[in-house]
Design a protein around this nucleic acid. Structure first.
Length: 273
DNA sequence: ATGGCTAGCCCGGCTAGA
């Protein structure tokens, strides 16, 4: 299909079943070209595929009973789909889904360009030094290796999702209170940086150097009302894609009202040449 | 400092999230 612009959204829905009405309204309101979901919290058969299809979308899904689970919704058909890293590590957690689509560039009808979308749910890590923390750090290394193995920095790649790391102190509402805390620790930030050093641009931070851009607020303590948030839901793009990015916004309204996820969607818009 | 909300699982009190 020939398009002038592409909209990519990411949203940790904290159970796709609990968030179905919100998600369908979001699709209708925003009509993203790609909506990457994290924390489906259900096996594949629990995914609301019929409702998604009725909304005019198709979904590549990677579910898991009770925990994790990622998906990519789009109106386009992918030419290839990958679940997990395929790196031989014994890890059944459904946290990584990549799909490659072919996009026609405006004015060049013969040239179909592959665009890869990756929906990622980075491990939480629980607490510094825990087994889950080690797993989280290893997961970053595996993600970097996956990128090195399958892609080049001059490919069109969007790596999006819930990274469970606030990259810098500006991404944290109270950096002093969060110092050396899970989500801000030096090793986590180094792990994320190793992934970014593949050749990725943090599209939000690139466009808005000084805005907090929080995307998650704790359900407890009325954190959202006090704007006690973290920016952990990120849209990374390789340089040739990032240079097309015109806007990134956090849909804070999705954190309001009845039964919100604790994460708000993040939406990036790209203008094709 | 701790627990504070929410969701899944399977039916009440765990685990997990961030």
């Amino acid at each position: 299909m020939t398009k002038k612009s592409i909209k990519i959204a990411t949203w940790n829905v904290n159970s796709v079943g609990q968030r179905l009405d919100r998600m369908l309204a979001f699709l209708e309101r925003e009509t993203p070209d790609f909506l990457c979901l994290q924390e489906l919290k259900g096996a594949d058969e629990k995914f609301p595929m019929e409702a998604v299809i009725a909304a005019g979308y198709r979904a590549e899904i990677f579910g898991q009973k009770a925990y994790n689970g990622v998906a990519i919704l789009s109106k386009m058909n992918p030419v290839s789909v990958t679940r997990n890293f395929g790196d031989g590590v014994d890890d059944a957690a459904a946290r990584f889904l990549a799909a490659t689509y072919e996009v026609d560039l405006e004015g060049k009808p013969q040239s179909k360009i592959p665009l890869t979308i990756m929906s990622s749910y980075i491990p939480n890590g629980q607490s510094i030094g825990s087994e889950k923390y080690i797993y989280k750090l290893e997961w970053f290394q595996r993600l970097r290796k996956y990128l090195d193995t399958h892609h080049r920095p001059d490919d069109l790649v969007a790596l999006v999702g819930d990274f469970n790391v606030a990259p810098n102190d500006i991404d944290v509402y109270d950096p002093a209170a969060w110092r050396d805390h899970i989500h801000t620790s030096i090793k986590e930030r180094q792990g994320l940086r190793q992934v970014v050093n593949f050749g990725l641009v943090d599209t939000f931070r690139h466009l808005y150097p000084d805005e907090p851009g929080y995307s998650w607020w704790d359900y407890r303590q009325m954190s959202f009302l006090q704007n006690k948030g973290l920016r952990i839901d990120l849209i990374y793009a390789t340089p040739p894609l990032a240079e097309l990015c015109r806007e990134v916004r956090v849909d804070r309204n999705e954190r309001k009202g009845e039964k919100p996820s604790d994460h708000a969607p993040v939406i990036a818009s790209f203008e094709l040449p």
